[in-house]
Computed example of a mutant assay.
Amino acid sequence: MPSEPLYIQIKQYIERKIDQGHWPVGERISTEMELTEQFSVSRMTVNKAIRDLVGEGKLERKPRLGTFVKRPAEKAESPLLDTRNIAQEVATRGKSYSCVVIKHQSIHADQTIATKLGVMLGSTVYYSEILHKENELPIQLECRWVNAKYAPEYHHQDFSKVTPNEYLTANCPMTAVEHTVEAIMCGDNIGRLLEMNAQDPCLLLHRRTWSDDKLISSALLYHPGSRYQLSSKIEL
């Protein structure tokens, strides 16, 4: 017996039908009543599955006509091997950038953060948590820890007006960057902020940056897998 909730099973069934080409772009899918009878569930359960797929941009409802497969939206993209200002990236795509500063505080490094930043346990570090948006849709959750010794004014910046990347690039020019990427399930908290379901895939970029021999910051950058992609280009 599948362990997933019924609405997830129905959602996965619809996604498989789309991926396998049974329901191409522009095709009307089965009605809610048909899916209700097929899976022997309540109409509310079917409606939940369809609403999720509409919210993810995979389906669209047309009044009095039904629910149709939607053409995939163009994904936002960032270079994997670069550290560009996300506000400039969004503007370059011709979209509107905005952000929400969730946290911006001075903290004492625990064992994990001390290891990430190469500082002593209990050292003062700065932490910022910012939700970046493109046309009001979240595309990145940035959780960043900064060595207070090397960027003492970081804590006093207004990150609703300047991004952490922009400030650090101007004041601690980056000479080395470390990147690690992994795919994760976003979970409840990240999903709520990125407007995703807890079971949806999320791209997580671990980034550490140096200025000369100084380790300046360590960041976790969460991206919705359905709306974002990372790319790289290597000259041979």
Rank of each mutant, 00 (worst) to 15 (best):
T45A: 01
T175Q: 12
L205D: 07
L59E: 10
C186K: 02
G187M: 08
Q157H: 07
C202P: 07
A91R: 12
V162A: 01
D200E: 02
I130K: 04
L203T: 10
N85D: 12
N171K: 06
L236D: 15
V41N: 01
E195P: 04
S232E: 15
I234W: 15
E134L: 13
W210L: 02
I190H: 09
S226V: 10
L137R: 15
K48I: 11
V181S: 14
K70W: 01
E32M: 13
S226C: 07
Q229S: 08
C202E: 01
H108P: 13
M1A: 09
D82R: 05
V54F: 09
T45P: 04
L193D: 05
K133C: 10
H179P: 09
R192K: 07
E56R: 14
T83A: 11
R16L: 12
Y167A: 02
Y222D: 00
L80M: 07
I10Q: 00
L80I: 06
H179T: 12
R43N: 07
G66T: 06
R61I: 09
M196Q: 01
F39R: 01
M120H: 15
E77T: 08
V54A: 10
Y222M: 02
A109F: 00
S98Y: 01
R51F: 04
V90D: 02
L193M: 11
G55Y: 10
T83Y: 10
E142T: 12
